[in-house]
Amino acid sequence: MAQAWKCSGLRWSAEGPELVWDGGRRSTLTWGKRVAFGVAEGGGRTCVGARGHACPAGAAVSARSTGARCEECARLDRAHSVAADTIADDPRPYRVYLAWFGPGMTKVGITAEERGSARLLEQGAVCFSWLGVGPLMAARRTEELLRAALRVPDRIPYAEKRAVRAALPGTAAERAGEVAELHARAVALGGWPESLVREPLRVVDHVEVFGLAGLPTAVGEVSELVAGGAVNGELVAAAGPDLHLETGGGVVVLDTRLMTGWGLVPDAGGELTVPVKGFSKAPGVQDGLF
């Protein structure tokens, strides 16, 4: 019986996307590479723990959860998250940014300056620009100011992001338009904290990094993994946590967060045998493609 591995998720490095496995092993992903694995039989999906520590209860978690954490571990993880607004004394400088995911889909957010653009890659931002840099609380206040004044959210659901990737404007200038407009409006606003230094417009485009140019429209997305099921497809693009895989029935999107918590084994088969939800104008409609 093949050894089962546990996946820690997708990470973005200077070389591109990588699948990270427990123990530190990494699988570099390149366009055209076949992504094939089976889900070990005889076991379910278990909590991945919090902050680098195993779940003390080894609790079972839902196959459709992207967090793969039980209620207690999810609480512990969020308690130490910058996004939870529970950390006020972080001495590191933070950047405020505008991120664009598709027409009418721009958000404002913050990230530690030392992380560079990693947060934008992890979110699947098609393009972005920095707005300013300063202490954490100043960055937070600026984020709230811009959310209210520009009427932009601080979160956009992944389902909305992945649904538009194959129909993005064709040029970098077109894709940068909304970010440039919002950046100009943002820096013209009063009320910015004095300790936050405004940054000029420099739009960074990730279409080539993600492999989105000429991307075929996806027919659906994996809704969950199941024991005994298999994933098999050729990688044509990756954005945020999502892998776009060419299968016998068309391109299917796999959110790699669904892989965590399962025991995964090598699979040499040629079929995708996990549940796939078809993209539809009617939310929640199940498609029997696979």
Rank of each mutant, 00 (worst) to 15 (best):
L201Y: 09
L150K: 12
R155Q: 13
G233T: 10
E181H: 01
A139P: 04
G191V: 00
A166S: 12
P216G: 13
R155D: 06
G214L: 11
E178M: 02
A230F: 11
G229D: 06
L145F: 12
F128G: 01
H206N: 14
R155H: 14
G233P: 12
G191D: 10
R162T: 15
P135T: 11
E181A: 01
S223N: 10
S129L: 03
L182Y: 13
E194Y: 07
V222H: 11
G229H: 14
T217E: 15
L201N: 06
G229Q: 11
W192S: 04
H206K: 02
A218F: 09
L201D: 06
R175G: 02
S129H: 04
A237C: 06
E224R: 05
S129A: 08
G211I: 07
P169L: 01
T142D: 12
G124S: 09
V203A: 06
A213E: 15
E208L: 08
L189V: 09
A218V: 02
I156E: 15
W130Y: 11
G132D: 15
V204G: 00
R141K: 15
L182G: 08
G170S: 10
S223K: 06
L168I: 00
L131E: 14
V236A: 07
P153W: 12
A176K: 02
G233H: 13
E194D: 07
L168M: 04
L235K: 11
L215P: 11
S195G: 03
